[in-house]
Amino acid sequence: MTRVLLVDDDVELASMLREYLEQEGFEAEVVHDGESGVREALSGRFAIAVLDVMMPRLNGVEVLRRIRAASRLPVLMLTARGDDIDRIIGLELGADDYVPKPCSPRELVARLRAILRRVADNSAESTSDGPIVVGPLRMWPERRSAQWQQQPLELTSTEFSILEVMARHAGRVVSKSDLSELAMGRPLARFDRSIDVHVSSIRQKLGARPDGDSWIQTVRGQGYQFVKA
């Protein structure tokens, strides 16, 4: 059974989510404070963590920061509905996705499964291909590892998936809708800025081209394009 860590100080909500997850075939454990969340997330016992942003003392953003300093454990953030700041900060720190609260347990499970499918990445396409090579970028999808200019490129699971899609389509525009479907495993929601934030983070990690432009170009009204060297 896939083990899920729930970190939320709302005892009633966490209990309800745990019960639903267990009905859906997951094994779920709950902790109600950020410090316990960090400790359990780094224990190696869980496949994924669900992390609430609004918690007393150590909030979810700081918990995520501490997790990312030591682990690539997939993390799904629970954010207040309409609070774009928390979502953007969470994604910039390496959250794999977010769900606004109040959320339906069914949506939460769908997002969890989408993330876990990406992490597993056991498709025939990924395991049968050699490395993807585009200019100074090399990616090994079966190992979920990448190099940039012959140096290790540290990417979150979602960043890796997004960059992989763009690298496979290098020189061509990939729409945000396609990136959401292919890389995040879900349709692009209206007003969803997740793709933009992840792409911005990838751009920062790649740096600028020799001519000063970005390796990932925004094509207005269409999507993003990874530029061939």
Rank of each mutant, 00 (worst) to 15 (best):
L163D: 03
D211C: 13
N122M: 08
R138F: 00
E29C: 03
D33R: 12
R117S: 09
R168W: 03
R81Y: 13
R144T: 06
S128K: 10
M139I: 13
L163A: 01
V38D: 02
F160L: 02
P152N: 03
L182S: 00
D213V: 01
D10K: 02
L73I: 08
R168G: 05
L93G: 02
I202S: 07
L78T: 14
L17W: 10
V173L: 13
S128G: 11
T2P: 11
E27Y: 12
R3M: 01
C103M: 13
V174R: 02
S214G: 01
R39E: 14
Y20S: 05
T218E: 15
E181H: 06
R118I: 03
L153W: 09
V219D: 08
P141A: 14
V7Y: 03
R190F: 10
E125N: 03
E19F: 03
P100Q: 11
D211L: 14
P100A: 10
V7M: 00
Q151N: 04
F191C: 09
D211I: 14
G130F: 07
D97W: 15
L116P: 12
V227L: 15
L13R: 07
E159G: 15
W148S: 02
V165H: 04
R186K: 07
L93S: 00
R138G: 02
V165C: 14
E40F: 09
E12W: 01
I216G: 08
E181S: 07
R209C: 09
L21A: 10
L58D: 12
I202M: 06
E62T: 09
R190G: 07
A95Q: 07
V50G: 09
S15F: 13
S15A: 11
R186A: 05
R87W: 02
L93H: 02
H32R: 12
V4S: 07
G185Y: 08
A110C: 01
G130E: 11
R87T: 15
G212K: 06
V173K: 10
V11A: 12
P100L: 10
M55R: 12
C103T: 10
L6R: 05
S123Q: 07
R172W: 00
I88M: 11
R68C: 01
G207F: 04
T156A: 08
H198N: 05
L112T: 04
R209Y: 06
L108W: 04
S104C: 03
E40K: 15
T158Q: 07
S200Y: 03
R193I: 04
I85L: 15
I89C: 03
A120M: 09
G25R: 07
D192N: 10
L182N: 02
T79M: 12
I216H: 12
M55N: 11
Q151K: 13
G25S: 04
E22C: 07
G34R: 01
Q147S: 00
P141R: 12
I216L: 13
K228S: 10
L21D: 05
P141S: 14
P102V: 06
